[in-house]
Design a protein around this nucleic acid. Structure first.
Lengths: 222, 222
DNA sequence: GTATAAATTAATGTATGCGTAAAGCCCCTC
DNA sequence: GAGGGGCTTTACGCATACATTAATTTATAC
């Protein structure tokens, strides 16, 4: 069993982040530092450090006498996030296309697309979402730009909760598979412009879709 | 006199950040938490919180028994940062061109370009750098995307120290002015694609230039 | 009943103290 | 002089205590 992290602050960070991403906190509710300290069985000090980090990452909000809460994401927020994700991932696509795919990368990407196909056929939305995440993770991992990778991850995480909630409210993602295949083709063909363009279109379509769903949901902001 | 911030942690954050950006810490040297605490006349607790934030922002590095140091930026780091800045700012340029400039924005941008011209004529590099920063700040401020604004600011800050150091090592920035005028033209003409393209070219040229200077410097990493 | 002021509560921001364990040092061996 | 084992120092990680002050409640006046 891998414990987790050496320091308590890191444990707190990891554990709280996990819970935030899995929507384990009551939506919109404030949680006090002491409650978190009790929950994770440590003093407020490491909890505080973890909260500072999480709030820096835009995942939680600290309100001085009310505690912390998961940042609610509105349709407008989602649009902001997707704009950034789109720009950054398109950059990755271009970079990767420029230098070409290694066989391992190619395999990983094609594998992820295959998994998406399979999940779609099996009507397993969770598996599809996982495969989709996998695809994008592999793509991002192929960038040599460490800062770029970590920035993308950060915005991906901000959007994660919402993606999960809306997963079952959207039409079956059939077109997505096509788009992913085309993107890998462009990457293999060493065509940066095309790769960036395809990826951008892919993301923009997803963003539009999400925006509509969120608008439909009213906007109680997740 | 504006004191600064209410809480000491915020004061520490602001003050330390200011010093980091102004290169007030000996290059490459580690500084202990206690020394910072003495420096700012507070206990280690708020200092720690500030350091956690700064390290999250990629400005400093915390090494457990050695203290904190300003993160050294190599030529490769600079390339990473500029890639991200380029992608994000091009996005802003496109967004702003899409919706058009308000008269105030137009005035601010043209004003900044004029200031760059003047500074160039007066051979005042500091003024030129300030005007350049102004231009980009005004451009970024014109985006409605809060997350995008803050992400750009973050990477801008990471590059700030290096920009200042290299300012006097580069050829006179004559071409820059032209490029800025052209960009404003595209923004006014509501031409998103052209605005993005121009801005991207502008930044990529700057990045190439910087890379060469840094390579020339050897790479002791700033 | 509403509004204002006073009193109370309680969550945070910060200082402090201490145990831990890493880093450095000393001394010894080869 | 290089290597290594044990000792010392000390910076940090964390728990804890407490003052501060915002939030809330109660009291009071109208």
């Amino acid at each position: 069993m891998s414990e987790g992290a050496g320091t308590r602050a890191e444990t707190a960070y990891g554990e709280l982040k996990r819970r935030v991403l899995n929507n384990a906190f009551p939506a919109g509710a404030y949680v006090l530092e002491q409650e978190l300290a009790d929950l994770l069985q440590m003093s407020r000090t490491p909890i505080r450090e973890a909260l500072v980090r999480l709030s820096n990452e835009g995942l939680v909000e600290i309100r001085p006498r009310h505690g912390m809460r998961v940042i609610p994401i509105s349709a407008a927020d989602m649009a902001e996030i997707y704009t950034i994700l789109t720009a950054l991932e398109a950059e990755v696509a271009a970079e990767v296309a420029r230098r070409g795919l290694t066989p391992a990368e190619r395999a990983a990407l094609r594998g992820a697309v295959a998994a998406m196909d399979a999940a779609l056929e099996a009507e397993d939305l969770d598996a599809w979402a996982a495969a989709d995440a996998d695809f994008h993770a592999h793509l991002v991992a192929a960038s040599a730009n460490r800062r770029l990778r970590s920035a993308i991850l950060q915005y991906w995480e901000q959007a994660h909760r919402v993606r999960m909630v809306t997963l079952r409210l959207r039409p079956k993602p059939v077109q997505s598979t096509q788009e992913h295949h085309a993107l890998v083709d462009a990457l293999e063909a060493n065509d940066p412009a095309q790769a960036a363009k395809l990826h951008r279109a892919h993301r923009e379509r997803a963003a539009t879709l999400l925006a509509e769903i969120l608008k439909t949901l009213g906007s109680p902001a997740l």
